[in-house]
């Protein structure tokens, strides 16, 4: 199997806090790719945007016996050098600004996602 080191993966997350079971896996895959030394970005758009609002991700907990919340997953992803970026237009749609976002999240416009898609080795869409 080819060593994936250095390849670029773009993960697009369109699901948010309304659908908790659709939130953990994209971050888990992103962390797996980062552990394999790939360059990984998770792009949050549409409903995916709302999990980045301060105080929101802490309330999403798939396993009530675990201390791990969606906030934990987001922090673990960032600690693994996964880049988290939100779509500017989606932010506006959710009536959010940069000050509403958890720390460490970048903001990019719609043209950026096109450029990123074209330059990525693979795009995963959720």
């Amino acid at each position: 199997m080819e060593d994936p080191e250095g390849k670029k993966i773009l993960v697009i997350q369109t699901h948010g806090v309304q659908t908790p079971t659709r939130t953990y896996s994209p971050l888990f895959y992103a962390m797996a790719a980062a552990a394999m030394e790939m360059e990984v970005m998770v792009w949050f758009t549409m409903d995916g945007t709302n999990q980045l609002r301060k105080g929101a991700a802490e309330k999403v907990q798939l396993d009530p016996t675990s201390h791990v919340t969606l906030k934990t997953m987001l922090e673990m992803a960032m600690d693994s050098d996964v880049e988290l970026t939100v779509c500017q237009q989606s932010l506006t749609l959710w009536d959010m600004t940069q000050s509403d976002l958890i720390d460490g999240v970048g903001i990019m416009g719609a043209t950026s996602i096109i450029d990123l898609s074209l330059s990525a080795d693979h795009v995963m869409y959720f």
């Binding site: 888990f28 552990a35 394999m36 030394e37």
Partner: peptide, 14 residues
Amino acid sequence: RPIATVESSKWVGP
């Protein structure tokens, strides 16, 4: 630098 990637049901990392 990583020499391995290890995953469990709750964690994945180098």
